[in-house]
Each structure stands twice: as C-alpha cells, then as structure tokens.
C-alpha cells in the first residue's frame, strides 16, 4: 500500500464551505445576542449585522445550489442505507481499535453514508427551516398582504421560535461536525483536505472501483 495525494474538494467547494462556516458562526453570534443571551454589539447593531450576514448567506446558498445542480454534485447527498451499519460500527467500535475506515473518500464519493444522511438532513430540513423562518420574520407582511391570513404579525412568535430552534440545532451540528473532522486518517487530515482540497489517502492494493466503497 502506498500513499497517494487525492483531490477531494474543488476551489468553489472550499470557498463555499468556509464562507458558509464564517457566515453561520457570525449569524449565530449575532443571533444569540438578539435572542438576549449576552450583549456584545448592542441590540441594534447585532440586528443590522445579522441581516447583512443573512443576505450574504442567501447569496452564497443561491450560488451553491447552482453549483450543485450544474456539476451534478447534488448526487453526493442522496442518502443511502448501504454501509450505514458498517460506518456506525466504525464510529462505535472500530475507531477505538484503530480499525481502517469502512469507506473511502474520493472526488466522486466524498461523503460516507452517515455524512450523506446528515448533510441531506442539513440541506433539506435544517437550513431550509432557518432560512424560511428568517425570511418570514423579515417579510411576513407580504403573504399577509396577498390574503394569506395564516401568516400575520400574530405568527411572528412561531416564526421566531422555529428560527431559534433551528439555531440550536445548527449549533449542536457544529459541535459534532467539528469533532468529526478529527476522525479522518489522522486528526487533521480532514481539516487539511477542506483547506488545501487534497487528502493523502492510502491506495488500495488493487485498483478497485472508482466508487471506492469497501465491501
């Protein structure tokens, strides 16, 4: 077996990831200030910065969606039950025994089955929850104006609570996500890959399928 430098993430992907990371952290910081958890910028400034960051994130998401569909990368996130058990077993048992990763990261399949499920949930449930509730908080009066009475100034409470709930979920995700980066080949290999785009992976003895899934 020999080590091979494999390209995992494109430039746009890394730009998207880190910009999104910074924006979400900043949104969380200003958001929890607006929530009343602490005072740093002051309420008014926190609201202003939160709105600006929200628009930046929306723009980024628009580009990311475009990128995912034009490159076909969205297929990475289609959840599958294949190997889920193996992956789970790895995190629960294998990792403590220095066992090898049950799945292998390649440009064509960069997410393990658990990641697929997690990121699918993130993209299809959690981010839409936070984005929709955020947009409704800012623009609830437009549906109201067009006769959608279910959304009015009286709904703001539920919109705000959904937004808060989303924020808590995102923060819990962040904690686990940060930790999971340390579970790669080495503690920093995943992080390095997300920065440089390349990861050193062990080349299998046989030139297996491109999918690289270990049976």
């Amino acid at each position: 077996m020999s080590k091979k430098r494999v390209r995992i993430y494109t430039g746009f992907e890394r730009f998207w990831h880190w910009t999104q990371a910074v924006l979400i952290l900043f949104l969380a910081f200003t958001g929890f200030e607006i929530h009343g958890a602490y005072t740093f910028f002051g309420f008014r400034e926190a609201v202003r910065y939160h709105s600006i960051a929200a628009y930046l994130l929306l723009t980024l998401i628009a580009f990311a969606i475009f990128w995912h569909f034009t490159t076909g990368e969205w297929r990475q996130y289609v959840p599958t039950l294949e190997n889920v058990r193996a992956q789970l077993e790895y995190y629960v048992f294998g990792i403590f025994r220095n066992a090898p990763h049950p799945t292998r990261k390649t440009m064509l399949s960069k997410l393990n089955p658990l990641q697929k499920i997690t990121y699918f949930g993130l993209k299809v449930v959690l981010i839409p929850l936070v984005v929709t509730s955020g947009l409704l908080y800012m623009f609830y009066r437009y549906p109201t104006r067009y006769g959608i009475e279910a959304i009015s100034v009286g709904s703001l409470k539920f919109i705000a609570l959904a937004h808060t709930l989303g924020a808590f979920l995102l923060m819990a995700f962040l904690v686990v996500h940060l930790y999971m980066t340390t579970t790669g080949e080495t503690v920093f290999s995943n992080l390095r890959a997300m920065i440089t785009g390349y990861e050193e992976v062990e080349e299998p003895a046989s030139t297996g399928t491109l999918e690289g899934q270990q049976a």
């Binding site: 607006i34 929530h35 009343g36 309420f43 009286g154 703001l156 409470k157 705000a160 609570l161 808060t164 709930l165 924020a167 808590f168 979920l169 923060m171 819990a172 904690v175 686990v176």
Partner: peptide, 25 residues
C-alpha cells in the same frame, strides 16, 4: 400577549436546544 426578540423565550425551545447542545458536547 406577544413575542419580541431579546425579551421573550420559549422555555420549551430553550430547554430542548440547550439540552441538545449539552448532549452534543
């Protein structure tokens, strides 16, 4: 009789959110 950010919280959402964060950590 209404919610405004900065003043109001839902005890349920707070408990769930903080509990989840704690569990994660």
């Amino acid at each position: 009789d209404f919610y405004i950010p900065g003043r109001d919280r839902s005890p349920k959402v707070e408990a769930f959110g903080k509990g989840l964060l704690l569990l994660a950590i």
